[in-house]
Nucleic acid binder design. Structure first.
Lengths: 246, 246
DNA sequence: AGGCGCTTGTGAAGGCGTGCACAAATCGCG
DNA sequence: CGCGATTTGTGCACGCCTTCACAAGCGCCT
């Protein structure tokens, strides 16, 4: 697959260089690679081998090479990958070269934490607005930002184009909020409410359900408990990394 | 697959009835089904068709039937699934029949929110302890629970067996915390720190990285923006549910 | 009692993702 | 200049998961 090979900054040939089709599984791992690369860059590394980067990101080296090959050929055989170049490439693919505006709806326990989450800002996301339906919370200042009433959403979206909406409301309100977000042109939603959202086909929804994660772990606890009850269970072989499916 | 067919409460034949081997993908969906079932039960439904339950859980009906078939035959042809029975079954499989003790390590923005997250308690998880390494935070009372110093972990784990440890520390501290948790016998870890954890093979780790979720959405924003720039983009066909890979 | 409609459970096919193993390519050194 | 060490990029096979399509089973109505 000998795709384009533009030398320096990405996106030079016209406007967009035939956006590559990446497998979803690969996309989900790119941020992990990016984090590992930043870490390596801070440590002063100029190049990394697939083996080294794979270890830092916690994946198989063959998988990493295949993932990166989907973006084009940015490695040098016998040497490895140029850290800085790869960072630029992945950030470009992920659209992190432009800072994207995020709003958080629902300033409860979780929304409060999200509003102040440092991990967002460090990745080029700007939390530009906080909303809530509860008038008692409106006006509260969190992390230097005042909470607005949800009815102000339209006005604020008009001032600044909101790329991503984060829903941290109770599940009963989530569908309403999603509809409002869609109405003002938001096409990406991160949903923390434990419910199914119905949105138009051009809108992407990702769901994070903290209780579900615990339940999956609970299953494995249950499984391990019932297995050690039966067979000879001294399976303390040496080993390292294990993780139950992502 | 005509497995066991115990009529009433699960786990009657001896201690554990030949724990079924479920695909990981199925396990990850069971909590979603469970939530939908609870919702239906509150609405007074006695039975559900696979079609109805699938819609409530946001999945394909064939997938749902296959998932449920892995647990055994708990449906009635021509009628559907008995809601109450299915709830019991799934809760048993997930190990939610016993309440599991959870501890949260790291009482920053996120840990604070997790400590008070209502979704945990409602699913049978008890947050029994909060830890932090910062002495300034030790003693702070969150949601009626005092923050303990991380050095107290061993003592508290001795009093009450901790099933699941939640790591909400900065990434630099996460590996240390994981080691401590493993040392006191915790075999399931939910990691919110953006880093790779190294644990023994009998310990399950699930990772939740909020920034990664945003980056994946950012990718799709980038993709959509570059696609609408080229072709005739009035793809406003009717449609409903769309979600980018879980 | 018999037939009809509805719904589950599942065989089979296709697609996606993973991991191995190796050829191709590059660098450094003698 | 040539050779060997090293590392990428990828063809291939395997296994998991999803989806379709349908037979088997159940209840209800006549």
């Amino acid at each position: 697959m000998s795709q384009h090979r533009h030398g320096s900054t990405p996106g030079e040939a016209g406007s967009v260089p035939a956006f590559p089709e990446l497998p979803e599984a690969t996309i989900a791992r790119l941020p992990e690679y990016l984090r590992a690369l930043h870490h390596l860059a801070e440590a002063g590394a100029e190049t990394v081998s697939s083996e080294g980067l794979a270890a830092a990101a916690g994946v198989n080296s063959a998988k990493l090479r295949k993932d990166l090959s989907h973006l084009g050929s940015y490695g040098t055989r016998g040497v490895g990958y140029d850290v800085a170049l790869l960072v630029d490439q992945i950030e470009y693919i992920l659209g992190l070269d432009k800072s994207r505006a995020v709003c958080v709806v629902g300033v409860g326990n979780l929304g409060h934490a999200l509003a102040g989450y440092a991990g967002f800002a460090s990745r080029g996301f700007r939390v530009v607005a906080l909303f809530d339906a509860d008038h008692n919370k409106v006006g509260e200042v969190i992390n230097g930002m005042a909470v607005r009433h949800i009815s102000d959403l339209e006005a604020i979206a008009a001032e600044e184009s909101i790329a991503i909406g984060v829903i941290a409301t109770p599940p009963t309100a989530a569908q309403n909020v999603a509809d409002l977000l869609v109405a003002v042109g938001v096409t990406s939603i991160l949903n923390f409410a434990p419910c199914v959202l119905s949105v138009p086909p051009n809108v992407d929804v990702r769901k994070v359900d903290l209780a579900i994660e615990l339940q999956i772990l609970s299953f494995h606890e249950h499984r391990k408990a019932s297995l050690t009850a039966l067979p000879g269970g001294s399976s303390d072989t040496a080993g390292d990394q294990e993780a139950v499916g992502s």
